[in-house]
Design a protein around this nucleic acid. Structure first.
Length: 803
RNA sequence: GCCGGGGUGGCGAAAUUGGUAGACGCGCCAGAUUCAAAAUCUGGUGGUGGUAACACCGUGUCGGUUCGAGUCCGACCCUCGGUACCA
């Protein structure tokens, strides 16, 4: 053992040892509890960034703790290798998306390995390879058979100059990012997964996810957005179909002063046929991107139609307006306008001078009388007024009875809607999984027979622009119909990459399986015990994966209800207050730091700097502190080496002759107690703090080979420190564990546990507060009686002052 | 806009969930070591007043509950993430 710590040499030694012993390659074992620890798979953007370091270090810390706790631990890794950036890079650098992607994977794999992660690399998957994506296609066909796949028109961002579909990210201030042309909405036929068929289960099962952070459960609950309400039918004068409006506030039905329909509503299109103004209004609303955010922050505008509707209960006529704030995708694309009791309707009514009809009297204790011209009364409290026979009813009674009356006269009924929309999986892009469908003029839509999977994505077409390149490539498009053998065309849309990442965790269990998507090994390993990934995936990825898991369960390939038992939503790594990203040019690359300081230093830094869930604002100063600590730790072990190796027998506690050592031993285990608590709640930054405290504690002692008591205390404390830190800085701990002759492999040692007996204290420090303010301290015997304690406390000079 | 977080010394943070605010680390200051520097070691370090003991103030802002609030309640400000085609 050298007196100086040389990270590079230490890390080579440890990594060679793990490789030689295949320390992280695992198989199914029935006599040992399994633990599946998974970090979200990376997108191969080109280089490792700090977010990766944080994510994979956290996962590795948890995996290694579980190994030391004697679980059969699986920690795999693969690549989310399809997606938009590869197409952009391909055009920019004149390489194929495949080459760009695979090169990036090779670079990043080397970088990840340099971090010393305990990963079973034999299970690596790459989603852009046919061995993987054929099962996307197979899954698509199974879902098609089950009626969970369908086609319908939906809106995309269209760049009229580049003639291509743009992702929301490619639209900047309403313009295409390359062409700078004003983006238009365009409707095209697209494929959908019917996630709404699982909406209730996805929502209700949230209550079973005890290992998930509450805020993510709340986000998913709100995202699904189940709302119970009533569909109300409003007959439209001189039109065959009534307007149907969904409302959760049927109690305000008598307060309706207008109906608002979406610009995409069929009735809006009929109105446009006869009015140039309406046509222009609808046209203007098309010049924006498709994001919900843009729609929500846009100025609320409307235009009256020539149509009128009848109120189903009063028979009054109501004007029908086309409004840019009504979304066609939610509910029925039509809402009833109740200005007196809805914020948005109130503002709209003021702008367009529509009547404000109060129908709920606010309760007594509210500001009375309520001035409805100033603000709507939106609280669901109060009694009904101006509502015919329902006057004086409470809101609850009115909701029940009005719904009943509507039902009786066939003007509506109770219903449930969801904010959740079906999952559009079509992409008009090249670099993705081809959708396995064929368009035949005679037979219509025909699924590709399973025996003909995979439908291979051609690699030899020229990349000149992003978008639907496959459609231009006749070698791919032209085929024959599997039914009638006539000439037919392949579907040229590819799948959303979220499909790839919705089941990959199960594929790691059987990556070599080429007969089926998943085999029984997937049932052994799933569900994932611990999933770790960025909070930015709280809604989409985590909801899609839950959905597909349930589909795979229903197909019989999996036997659990949920994919991820426990979830650690890691905070983002920010630089200058912003998410690190290439487009913002604020990316910190960790590799130079690893070269300079070693992987352990960077791992220690990323764990120590902030608790896992919190956003981490990047500052480079702390890295040197982490390095300094490891130097100190190494030197400490070096100084105690002989004493520790020479110390074989452990004197029982009660035979300790030096009270200061006994005190130190007790302090040590108090720190360990806290450490174990923090490990349990996954607050790893304070686990590092605890080890630092232990180092400070032992540094007070001079290494002494002669004193068995001192040597034993050091023997025990150093052993605890090395084992506690081993999951976080595995290389240095591996080498130190051997150097101090504790054993061959620290991974096989037990994770530290506090010694409760050691913590029993003869004396306790008591804090004395008067009116919540600290006024004194008292050191007392643990056995002292209450009366005696009060007597002693009152005797203190400082306490007398305040009594 | 909507949904979900966050805001504590010069900086990253801690406070076992209503009971010693600032553990641990970074930075800074002083000292030791050195021809000198780096590295290392020792001590100090929220603010104000005081030689000191100690006192008062202090966890984004304003208000409330409590013997006692960083922690609970109400309103607001700032900020980050998501917002369905970035992943």
């Amino acid at each position: 053992m050298q007196p100086q710590y040389h990270a590079q040499a230490v890390e080579d030694t440890a990594q060679t040892f793990w490789a030689k012993h295949r320390s992280f390659e695992v198989t199914e074992k029935l006599d040992q509890p399994s633990f599946y620890c998974l970090s979200m798979l990376p997108y191969p953007s080109g280089e490792l960034h700090m977010g990766h370091v944080r994510n994979y270090t956290l996962g590795d810390v948890i995996a290694r703790i579980k190994i030391m706790q004697k679980y059969n631990v699986l920690q795999p890794l693969g690549w989310d290798a399809f997606g938009l950036p590869a197409e952009n890079a391909a055009i920019k650098h004149r390489v194929s998306p495949q080459n760009w992607t695979l090169n990036n994977i090779n670079t990043m794999r080397t970088q990840l390995k340099r971090m010393g992660l305990g990963i079973d690399w034999s299970r690596e998957i790459q989603t852009c390879l046919p061995e993987y994506y054929r099962w996307n296609q197979w899954l698509f066909l199974q879902m098609f058979k089950k009626g969970l796949v369908y086609q319908r028109e939906s809106t995309v961002n269209w760049d009229p100059v580049d003639n291509t579909v743009l992702a929301n990210e490619q639209v900047i201030d309403g313009r295409g990012w390359r062409s700078d042309a004003l983006v238009e909405k365009r409707k095209i036929r697209q494929w959908f997964f019917k996630i709404t068929a699982y909406a209730d289960e996805l929502l209700d099962a949230l209550d079973t996810l005890e290992g998930w952070p509450q805020e993510i459960i709340t986000m998913q609950r709100n995202w699904i957005g189940r709302a119970h309400g009533v569909d109300v039918h409003f007959p439209v004068i001189d039109q065959p179909d009534p307007l149907i409006a969904f409302t959760t506030r049927i109690d305000t039905l008598f307060g309706v002063s207008y109906l608002a329909i979406s610009v995409d509503h069929p009735l809006a299109h009929i109105a446009a046929q006869t009015s140039e103004n309406i046509r222009a209004f609808i046209e203007t609303s098309q010049h924006t991107d498709t994001s919900e955010r843009s729609a929500a922050i846009a100025e609320k505008k409307g235009i009256a139609t020539p149509f009128l509707a009848h109120h189903p209960l009063t028979g009054n006529t109501l004007p029908i307006w086309i409004c840019n704030y009504v979304v066609m995708d939610y509910g029925t694309g039509c809402v009833m306008g109740v200005p007196a009791h809805d914020l948005r309707d109130h503002a709209f009514a003021l702008t367009y001078t529509l009547p404000i009809l109060p129908v709920i009297q606010p309760p007594e204790n509210a500001t009375t009388p309520w001035d409805f011209t100033q603000a709507p009364w939106v609280e669901p409290q109060g009694t009904l007024i101006n509502s015919d026979t329902f006057n004086t009813h409470t809101i609850e009674q009115a909701q029940k009875q009005i719904a009943q009356v509507l039902h009786q006269q066939a003007s509506g009924g109770q219903t449930t809607t969801y904010r959740l929309r079906d999952w559009g999986v079509s992409r008009q892009r090249y670099w993705g999984t081809p959708i396995p469908m064929i368009h035949c003029d005679h037979c219509g839509l025909v699924p590709v027979p399973e025996s003909e999977l995979p439908v291979i994505l051609p690699l030899d077409l020229p990349m000149t622009k992003t978008g639907a390149q496959l459609a231009q490539y006749s070698t791919f498009v032209d085929t024959t119909c599997p039914h009638c053998n006539a000439a037919a065309q392949r579907e040229t849309d590819t799948m959303d990459t979220f499909v790839d990442s919705s089941w990959y965790y199960a594929r790691y269990a059987c990556p070599d399986q080429n007969q089926t998507m998943l085999d029984d090994r997937a049932k052994y390993w799933t569900p994932v015990d611990q999933y770790i990934g960025g909070i930015e995936h709280a809604n989409m990825h985590l909801l899609y994966a839950r959905f597909i898991h349930k589909v795979l369960r229903d197909i019989g390939l999996l036997n659990s209800d949920e994919p991820f038992q426990k979830l650690l939503a890691q905070g983002m790594v920010l630089k200058d207050g912003k998410k690190m990203s290439k487009s913002k040019g604020n990316v910190i690359t960790p590799m130079p730091l690893i070269e300079q300081y070693g992987a352990d230093t960077l791992r220690l830094f990323s764990i120590f700097t902030a608790p896992p869930e919190q956003t981490l604002e990047w500052h480079s100063e702390g890295v040197e502190g982490a390095q300094r600590f490891l130097n100190r730790f190494w030197l400490l072990c070096y100084q105690w080496k002989d004493a520790v190796i020479g110390c074989q027998t452990q004197p029982p506690l009660e035979h300790f002759t030096q009270p200061n050592l006994l005190k130190m031993h007790s302090d040590c285990h108090l720190i360990v107690k806290q450490l174990c608590f923090d490990v349990e709640r996954q607050q790893f930054n304070t686990v590092v703090s605890a080890v630092m405290k232990l180092v400070n504690l032992i540094s007070e002692l001079a290494p002494d080979v002669e004193s068995t008591e001192t040597a034993w205390l050091a023997h025990e404390t150093l052993s605890i420190m090395i084992r506690a830190l081993a999951p976080i800085t595995p290389h240095i701990c591996h080498v130190l564990w051997q150097a101090l002759a504790y054993g061959d492999n620290v991974l096989e040692a037990d994770y530290p546990q506090e010694d409760l007996q050691a913590i029993q204290r003869a004396q306790i420090t008591l804090i004395i507060q008067i009116n919540g303010k600290l006024r004194g301290q008292l050191c007392i015997d643990a056995q002292m009686s209450k009366d005696k304690i009060i007597e002693s406390a009152c005797a203190l000079e400082n306490i007398k002052k305040y009594l």
